[in-house]
Amino acid sequence: MLILTCPYCGVKAEETELSPGGEAHLKRIGPKGTAEEFEAYLFARKNIKGVHFERWRHAYGCNKWFLAARDTHTMQVYGTYKAQTAHATDEIVANARQARAEWVPDWPQASEAVVA
């Protein structure tokens, strides 16, 4: 059974206590978006076989949304983090890199990061 630690209340929750919310960090497309952008936002998913970031809700606990980094191939959990974050923490990145040396995050790294 998949076990994720809720980053808010700290509970180690089994998957039956959680409710999954799909791919994380999707950027919402507003009214000015093109049909292609809107389609991509609604339907096109990375569906990664490997390091995957996703949303979860601690449904039978504190009921808050959080994010998790999980390997969809090995089921290893690299860590969980709060929802109000643009991308996973350095610690999670390090965990993932340790398991998959070839993996690189697809967001700008700390040195080059732009604060939004």
């Binding site: 998949l2 998957e15 039956t16 999954p20 990664i48 076989k49």
Partner: peptide, 13 residues
């Protein structure tokens, strides 16, 4: 299962 995976196994519950 209600989340993505490629394990050809699936959740026990």
């Amino acid at each position: 299962d209600s989340y993505n995976a490629f394990t050809q196994r699936g959740s026990w519950h």
